[in-house]
């Protein structure tokens, strides 16, 4: 069978990513352009405008890196959700245009599924329990009977969002997560902060409020607040992950998403995996952050198992849940 080539567009939040993957499991390109807001967090409309401005160039760059032309593409994949509406629409519009211009099929991909699939590819994971942590998502998931089941998730804001907002309030440089991590290394005193695990789910809004309160009170050093914030936030993740690992008995534990770059979180995941006889696997940052390669690769596996998204049903779904997606390539 011929090797097929897919171009994937990711645009769920502040990253506009274009990746190219082939059906023999190679990533040929992974170009990312990030929208950095002048102040505050991501403004969906501003980010969408940025994506619209750079999408053409980023596609050209990806094709050049892969050493192919648009005529070599067999189909186009795009992130159909979940994410910020205006951003998703920009990526979807570009994908539809490419697909109709090149007269090749379109494949809508779930962003969360893509994070798992690229990790399975790059880390050689067969059937992992996955902890996916980023600015927009906090999910513990594993495959079970046709779908990626959600064992635990945040009830309010994502863990990365909690860290980002805190970092901005503390006037730390962008991006917030690494800045908090660096300061936390110098902290040693544990300040009591709300540790909220409800069954298998987590809540970060109370932790954020309390950490901001500590910032205002200024009774403790910023290093100690960062340290306590990390210990609490990641301790919660560890607990839910461990429970899901014990429950499912899976042999691999995959950490992905931007927050997965954090060394403290990685050490917790290693410990948990070790205690349960599972292999800890960390997705490298270029594939763990929002990127186009994961969309392209997931487009490939979906396409190979017959998934197509006709233009008339290619509407974006900003609230498309991970556990609503059929994953026929796993059964």
């Amino acid at each position: 069978m011929d090797v097929l080539t897919c171009l994937g567009i990711e645009s769920t939040a502040d990253n506009l990513g274009v990746g190219i993957a082939s059906s023999d499991g190679r990533i040929l390109a992974n170009e990312i352009t990030t929208h950095v807001p002048e102040e505050g967090g991501i403004h969906p409309r501003e980010a969408a405008r940025h994506h619209a401005d750079v999408v053409g160039d980023t596609i050209s760059r990806a094709l050049a890196t892969a050493g192919i032309t648009s005529r070599d593409l067999d189909f186009i994949a795009f992130a159909q959700g979940p994410g910020l509406g205006p951003c998703l629409r920009t990526g979807a519009t570009a994908a539809r245009a490419l697909s109709s211009y090149l007269k090749v099929p379109l494949v809508g991909v779930n962003h969360c599924v893509a994070h798992i699939e690229i990790g399975r590819l790059t880390e050689d994971a067969v059937d992992p329990l996955t902890l996916y942590v980023s600015g927009g998502n906090t999910i513990v998931t594993g495959y079970e009977a046709g779908r990626y089941r959600v064992f635990g998730e945040t009830l309010d804001i994502a863990v990365g969002n909690c860290l980002d907002v805190f970092a901005r309030a503390a006037e730390l440089p962008y991006p917030g997560g690494p800045a908090v991590e660096e300061l936390a290394l110098k902290g040693e005193k544990l300040i009591p902060l709300p540790y909220v695990v409800k069954g298998m789910d987590l809540s970060y809004s109370g932790l954020l409020t309390a950490a901001m309160g500590e910032l205002r009170k200024a009774e403790h050093s910023l290093e100690d607040i960062c340290f306590s914030l990390q210990e609490t936030a990641y301790g919660m993740l560890g607990e839910v992950t461990e429970r899901a690992l014990a429950h499912t008995g899976k042999g691999e534990l995959l950490l992905t998403g931007g927050v997965g770059a954090n060394k403290r979180l990685r050490s917790m995941i290693s410990l948990i995996a070790e205690e349960h006889g599972a292999a800890a696997k960390f997705v490298p940052i270029r594939y763990a952050t929002d990127n186009g390669a994961m969309i392209a690769w997931t487009g490939v596996v979906a396409y190979m198992s017959g998934v197509r998204t006709p233009v008339e049903s290619s509407f974006i779904d900003s609230r498309w849940r991970l556990d609503e997606v059929e994953v026929p390539w796993r059964s």
Binding site: P192, E231, G235
Partner: peptide
């Protein structure tokens, strides 16, 4: 005990 958690936090929880 949960080794992955900060000992003080772990004890308190």
């Amino acid at each position: 005990e949960k080794r992955y958690r900060h000992p003080e936090l772990d004890r308190e929880i």
